[in-house]
Amino acid sequence: MNDVLLAPARVLVTKIGLDGHDRGSRIIAAYLRDAGMEVIYTNPWQAIDAVVALALEEDVDVIGISSLATDHLLVPKLMVALDAAGLGHVRVVVGGIVPDEDEANLLAAGVSKVFHPGAVREDIVTEVERLAIAASNERPLD
């Protein structure tokens, strides 16, 4: 078990569903970049299958889903699809407008963390880094 990363964490920052507001995802991408991580950034409106394909090809440690409207409701489907693709070690975080009752559902579905408006840079970076280390330790060696 390592408690540090041997190489920069790789994080997929993306949006699923219908919404296209990207202020949040752009700021998060900049935060993670400035913290020394490698961020794979995409267009909005990714299909669940596309997020899985991206995570697989890019072999990411963490997936960040930004949601302003209600697109976070699709995240449980993503969790199932990641597991099916052998990516159970990949950590998923959701950021944006997520009502409390939905947050409980997301956490139950395997989401590691939900960030709400007002979350600050330091907390986000620290948490993503912690999750990247955890994912990295669980990643199958072959």
Partner: peptide, 8 residues
């Protein structure tokens, strides 16, 4: 400086 990158 930070070693980070946005890969787009």
């Amino acid at each position: 400086i930070t070693g980070g990158a946005v890969l787009g």
